[in-house]
């Protein structure tokens, strides 16, 4: 059976390699992506419209803000689904496999982590706040922030990490992030623009229309960062303990 299944795999592989020869040269100005009016419009107008040097962030958080908002909602729903499934299955077999952590946290590991955590968290804030100018943004900053809490759970134990970021607060912060994102969108709607049309925020804040878009992008990135931080940590906490939130690795 394995021999027979190798034949279609090789055929499809050969077909893919054959089709890949039709790809444009890497970085070629004649490729369809570079020729389309969309990308040249963004390259010409992003700096004028929003004063954001990093075009990737401007496209993600402003021009395609609706898309990014629902990407954040997808992250939120994924976290909630894991929570819901594991909460039910852990209730059913409660006490069946309770293993206690009997190892003391290692002195060298905990002290190294003690030095690392502040640096990691400051870097997470930098990535989040500097996403307009350099690579980065809400998703990356949120993941780095969530990783710092996972590092606490790995080097001490889960209880130490949960004392700093309780599980029910994870859910609250995750929801709050989306509310912040959608709230900025709704606010610009109430001010007479379209949903997520940040330029209208210039009516209530003392900035130009371009800088209103610049700063609103930071606002929605903070929303994304909050959701991603909370969901990443809650994913780890639930998956490593099958939803019991006790013991763990």
């Amino acid at each position: 059976m394995k021999k027979i299944s190798l034949i279609p795999v090789l055929l499809v592989g050969a077909l893919l390699v054959y089709a890949a020869q039709d790809f444009p040269e890497w970085g070629s100005p004649n490729s369809p992506a570079s020729q389309s009016p969309v990308s040249s419009h963004f390259i010409a107008n992003t700096g004028v419209d929003t004063e954001v040097p990093n075009m990737v962030t401007a496209v993600l958080a402003d021009y395609r803000g609706f898309d990014t908002m629902f990407e954040t909602v997808v992250v939120f729903i994924a976290g909630m689904a894991v929570l819901a499934i594991l909460k039910n299955s852990s209730k059913k077999k409660a006490g069946s496999k309770e293993f206690e952590v009997d190892v003391e946290p290692d002195l060298i590991v905990t002290n190294t982590v003690r030095l690392l955590i502040p640096v990691i968290q400051i870097f997470a804030f930098y990535v989040l706040a500097h996403g307009h100018v350099s690579p980065g943004g809400g998703f990356q900053g949120g993941v780095v922030m969530g990783a710092s809490f996972i590092l606490i759970a790995l080097s001490w134990d889960l209880d130490t990490a949960l004392a700093r970021f309780p599980a029910d607060r994870c859910t609250l912060v995750a929801g709050l992030g989306i509310v912040l994102y959608a709230g900025i969108g709704l606010l610009s709607m109430f001010l007479g623009g379209e949903f997520l049309d940040y330029a209208e925020l210039a009516q209530i804040f003392p900035v130009s229309r371009e800088m209103a878009r610049y700063h609103a992008m930071l606002g929605v990135e903070i929303g994304v960062g909050l959701t991603v931080t909370a969901i990443m940590f809650s994913l780890y906490a639930n998956l490593s303990t099958e939803g019991r939130l006790k013991g763990g690795l």
């Binding site: 990737v56 962030t57 690579p135 980065g136 943004g137 998703f139 990356q140 993941v143």
Partner: peptide
């Protein structure tokens, strides 16, 4: 940007 996301 993509590389950063992939790394994290």
């Amino acid at each position: 940007d993509v590389a950063f996301t992939e790394a994290t």
